[in-house]
Simulated assay, not measured.
Amino acid sequence: MPSTDPTFLVLGCLAAFGCGSIPFGLILVKLAGKGDVRAHGSGNIGATNVSRVGGKGLGMVTLLLDIAKGFLPVFLARQAAFPVDMQAALALCATAGHVFTPWLKFKGGKGVATALGAALAYRAVAVLPSLGLFILLVALTRYVSLGSIVGALALPVSMGWVRETVHKANLLGIEVQAGIREQDPWQAVFLWVLIALLVVAKHHENIARLLKGTESPLWGAKKGEAPHA
């Protein structure tokens, strides 16, 4: 079992925060000669706005890198057999690093992709309900923000409900898994609740526009209407 010394935990959280804080969207748009992504569209450094400024290809690369910077810290912690509550703490720190990027005066993205990456590393199967809700809502409403908000709120529910096999057995020389992991401690579930609330809070402007009916859809925005998602 890895050390649970407070100093060890703090160093791990700082490393996760640093990993999450890398503003890939900003860097890629500048390298592509498109200027500062924050000066265009919604001003966000995430994949959606990068797609608007630098094209779909650049947006896809940004999405994958933002997912990776949430995935990596939690994946390494899981491989090292860290307790699940510490894994969840690293997930929160990586997401917070993206949201509060110190290199951009603590003004970063909305944390959706980074939280997704962390969740995939923590328990990939628990992401399926959130991902399904996201796809369904975007398909029905064309609002990425609405799908992101509902998907984020569903994530801690999935983390607390979905179990996974962990017990290993040797069958004819082949190692297989059997059994179900016990429910995560409340501390881990609570940290996923904080992650969800952080993502939702960063969508406060989108929520206001959704309530007013002025949020721009993923496609088919009115001519001359500035995109906000």
Rank of each mutant, 00 (worst) to 15 (best):
N206M: 03
V189P: 10
D184S: 13
L137Q: 00
A154C: 13
V53D: 01
I180T: 14
V138A: 07
G108C: 03
M60K: 13
F106G: 10
Q177L: 13
S148E: 07
Q79L: 09
V112C: 00
E205V: 10
A201C: 05
K56D: 05
W192A: 03
L28F: 06
L133H: 02
K105S: 15
D5T: 08
L131A: 13
L90R: 02
G70F: 01
G173K: 06
G224C: 10
W192I: 08
S148H: 00
G108L: 04
V162M: 03
L131G: 07
P185G: 12
F106T: 15
L65N: 02
L65Y: 06
V144G: 03
R142P: 08
N49C: 05
F82Q: 01
K107Y: 08
V189N: 13
G173Q: 03
E182K: 13
L211A: 09
N206H: 03
A196H: 06
A121L: 05
P73R: 09
E175S: 14
P129N: 08
Q177V: 03
A201Q: 06
A139P: 09
A226G: 12
P83L: 00
G224L: 10
K223G: 03
A39H: 10
G173T: 12
P156Y: 04
R78C: 08
L120I: 15
M86T: 12
L136N: 08
S3P: 11
F71Y: 15
I195G: 02
K222T: 05
H98D: 00
H98L: 04
F106A: 11
V138W: 02
T48H: 05
S216M: 10
S130V: 00
R163I: 05
V125K: 13
I67E: 00
I174E: 14
E225Q: 15
V125G: 08
L128W: 10
A196F: 10
F100P: 00
V166R: 10
T4V: 15
R163Q: 08
V53E: 01
A178F: 14
